[in-house]
Simulated assay, not measured.
Amino acid sequence: MASAQKSLGNIRRSFEPWNEPSETPLIAFDGVTKRFGRFKAVDDLSLAIYRREFHALLGPSGCGKSTLLRIMAGFEEPSEGDVRLDGQSLLGMPPHRRPVNMMFQSYALFPHMDVAANIAFGLKQDGMAKSEREDRVAEMLKLVKLDGFASRKPQQLSGGQQQRVALARSLAKRPKVLLLDEPLGALDKKLREETQFELMDLQQEMHLTFLIVTHDQEEAMTMADRISVMRDGRIVQVATPEIIYEAPATRYVADFIGSVNILEGAVEDSRNGMTRIAAKAGATIEAESGLDMTPGETVFFAIRPEKLRLSRRAPADEQLNALRGEVWDIAYLGDMTLFNVKLASGDIVRAATLNAARGSDEPIGYDEEVWLTFPADAGIVLGR
Rank of each mutant, 00 (worst) to 15 (best):
Q162P: 12
I212T: 12
E268R: 14
G233T: 08
M72H: 13
E368A: 14
R276D: 05
D82E: 12
Q237G: 00
Y252A: 02
V349S: 04
M200V: 15
V42G: 13
E20Y: 01
N261C: 01
R98T: 13
A48V: 00
A344F: 07
D44G: 02
L308H: 11
F29D: 07
P183G: 02
G325V: 15
F374W: 13
D255P: 01
D377L: 08
I277M: 06
Y245C: 10
E198Y: 03
S270N: 10
A247R: 15
V165Q: 10
E369M: 15
F15M: 01
L263S: 05
E182K: 00
L179T: 02
G379W: 09
L343M: 11
A172R: 02
I27Y: 01
R136M: 12
I71K: 05
T33F: 07
D317I: 12
A239K: 04
L308R: 05
T294H: 00
Q204Y: 06
S228C: 09
V213D: 03
A120T: 03
F301E: 01
I49K: 04
R174S: 13
A316M: 11
H96T: 02
S270A: 14
L333M: 11
P95S: 14
A322Q: 07
S3I: 07
D317T: 15
G290D: 09
G379I: 03
R70E: 09
R164T: 10
D135F: 10
P363Q: 02
N261H: 02
D367W: 07
M140V: 05
K173Y: 03
R164Q: 03
D329E: 12
K153Y: 15
A4M: 07
L68Q: 07
V260E: 03
G379T: 10
R51D: 10
G290L: 04
L382M: 02
M128N: 07
M113G: 10
V260L: 00
A2I: 04
M206G: 00
K145I: 02
P111K: 12
R12G: 08
E139C: 03
R52D: 07
D201T: 12
F339H: 08
T222F: 08
L143K: 07
L191H: 09
F15T: 03
T214K: 09
S14K: 13
L184G: 06
G325W: 15
R98G: 09
L143I: 11
D86W: 08
A352P: 04
A129C: 10
P94T: 10
L354F: 14
A138D: 14
P95L: 14
D367F: 06
S7T: 11
L146I: 08
D347L: 11
E306N: 13
K130S: 14
G296Q: 02
P60Q: 02
G334F: 05
K145F: 08
